[in-house]
Design a protein around this nucleic acid. Structure first.
Lengths: 226, 226
DNA sequence: ACACTATCTCAACGCCCGATGAATTACCAG
DNA sequence: CTGGTAATTCATCGGGCGTTGAGATAGTGT
């Protein structure tokens, strides 16, 4: 969890030559391409996720992201096209089928709801994932792209696996209730350090969430939902 | 639910006199104080609530609020001091003990959880209240004042009445779970018109929420929560 | 009717933002 | 070594924002 304000350049071997006769202006940063391998796009993306999730899209400036990444703002346009482009990259949840928490859900046995809770709590403690999910949830009300990303995440990584194994009626209705509940707890855990949720261990959170999640997915619905 | 883009001035009797020799510039709006009673501060507040809730604080400009209210932006500074001042007025939930939905909760009988659900759904369909609550919930992650407003609302209008009558263990833990769940449903109902929640009647939503809410408030917690 | 105050518009200032284009340096294939 | 391409900084532009102060008009108490 990189929380430094310092640019943290990778290296900087030796000043090649100080032939930069830039008059009386103060020297800001070295001109031209940096030596060594290029990790800048990733650094930008990481800090963008962090800042978007902490302050929201509209309150985050490209300048502050660039500063945190130790880079000129124009580089963002170079790599991501625009602020919007960077945002859409940032809300792409960095998950693949072999992400540990996901693989573990698939390979483990027992109550699928409890296994889902375990997976979910681990995902929210994964760097990158937590920021992307926070941003998605918090912007979803105002932002179409975020809303779509949320639906995609919900079906792909939560709904599909669980419903396949559980086979319940009204899967979408139940899923929406359960995911809303889970998101509410995850957000309180992340953004309200005074909240009791923040001081619970992963295991305690799982133990707390699981019964309610199971109730939502399995208890019979009222008659009017035929 | 005023959704017009038109200013909708209250009246405008007759042009008093066209002695405004303003050169060649186009005449914008009449100078000086308007005739008739003053409702401007309320109009500003109403449109501010609507826009803050729909687009978020940072994405809403004073100019657009003023335009929707049919008023000059400087008037906002006059009545509310600053954008921040307007925001803090906007997240003040317009409720008093004799608001119908609240009074009805107190005077009615039966399962307190179901009565709470009824009250809550009605509150979220009350103009002004819905906008204020949406804004509070959506900004709470980034904004201290909103977070405090959320806690205040939760304890004053939900927790206190319910726990008094229910008398359960770990009231805060249970309350936070339940309120998170309720907020998640209310937000989906308001901001995702494609969601199935949006097309349910108030009664159906109540029937859907109540069992889960009751489960959260009454089911025994796992052992580790002594 | 007269002064005082509250309401309202207008014009403008300074600031910060996102975006652009040119110039500079490093990497890499031949 | 050489030419092309990618990465990086810098300076700058135009625009929208929140805020301010001055001036005009309407209400109000005496």
């Amino acid at each position: 969890m990189p929380q430094t304000d310092v640019p943290a350049r990778p290296n900087g071997p030796g000043a090649p030559d100080a032939s930069n006769a830039a008059g009386a202006s103060g020297a800001h940063g070295a001109l031209g391409r940096r030596p060594g391998p290029t990790t800048t796009a990733q650094a930008i993306l990481t800090h963008a996720r962090e800042q978007f999730s902490r302050r929201g899209y509209a309150n985050t400036s490209l300048r502050s992201i660039a500063e945190a990444a130790g880079v000129d703002p124009a580089l963002i346009a170079h790599f991501f096209g625009s602020k919007r482009g960077l945002f859409e990259a940032a809300i792409e949840v960095p998950l693949s089928p072999d992400t540990p928490a996901l693989a573990e859900f698939r390979s483990s046995q027992g109550d699928p709801v409890e296994r889902l809770a375990v997976m979910y709590v681990k995902l929210w403690d994964t760097p990158g994932v937590a920021q992307a999910l926070s941003t998605i949830v918090l912007e979803a009300a105002h932002d179409t792209a975020a809303a779509k990303a949320m639906a995609r995440f919900m079906y792909t990584w939560v709904g599909q696996p669980l419903v396949d194994e559980l086979g319940t009626d009204h899967p979408e209705l139940r899923l929406r209730m359960m995911v809303g509940f889970m998101a509410a707890i995850a957000l309180q855990r992340r953004f309200d350090p005074e909240s009791m949720f923040a001081s619970l261990t992963q295991e305690q959170v799982v133990a707390l969430m699981t019964p309610t999640m199971r109730f939502m997915m399995t208890s019979p619905l009222p008659q009017e939902f035929a």
